[in-house]
Simulated assay, not measured.
Amino acid sequence: MAKSKEIRVTINLECIDCAQNFGKRCRRGISRYTTRKNRRNTPIRLELKKFCRYCGRHTIHKEIKK
Score class of each variant (00 low, 15 high):
R40M: 03
K24Q: 02
N21W: 00
P43G: 01
R57A: 07
R57V: 12
R40A: 07
S31G: 11
R57M: 14
S31N: 09
Q20D: 06
N12R: 09
K49L: 07
K37H: 03
N38K: 01
R45N: 04
I60K: 12
A2D: 12
F51C: 05
E63V: 10
I60H: 06
S4M: 15
I60T: 10
G56M: 14
E63D: 09
I16E: 10
I16L: 07
K66P: 14
H58T: 15
L13I: 11
Q20P: 00
K66A: 08
L46A: 02
R36P: 04
F22Q: 00
G56R: 15
V9L: 13
R36M: 12
R53A: 13
M1E: 09
R39I: 00
R25Y: 01
V9R: 06
R32D: 08
E14W: 04
C18Y: 02
H58M: 15
T42M: 05
R45T: 06
Q20F: 00
G56V: 13
I30Q: 05
C15L: 07
C18L: 10
A19Q: 05
Q20G: 02
T10A: 04
N12F: 06
C52P: 10
Y33R: 08
K24A: 05
I64C: 13
L46Q: 08
T35E: 03
K24W: 01
T34G: 06
N41T: 08
K50A: 11
S4I: 15
R32F: 07
R25K: 06
R28A: 06
H58W: 14
K24F: 01
H61V: 04
M1K: 08
T59K: 13
T34C: 10
R57Y: 09
R36E: 12
N41A: 09
T42D: 03
I11A: 11
S31C: 14
R27P: 03
L48E: 15
Y33L: 11
A19G: 04
K5V: 09
R28P: 00
G29I: 00
S4R: 12
I30S: 03
R27N: 10
G29P: 00
S4F: 15
F22L: 03
R45G: 07
I30M: 06
C18V: 03
I44E: 14
C52R: 07
K65W: 14
F22R: 02
C55V: 14
K37A: 05
K65Y: 11
K62L: 09
F22I: 01
K49Y: 12
I60S: 05
C55N: 13
R27D: 04
K37C: 01
N21E: 00
R25A: 01
T10P: 12
I7T: 05
R8G: 06
R32I: 13
S31T: 08
N41V: 02
P43A: 02
G56W: 15
R45M: 09
C52Y: 09
F22N: 00
G29M: 02
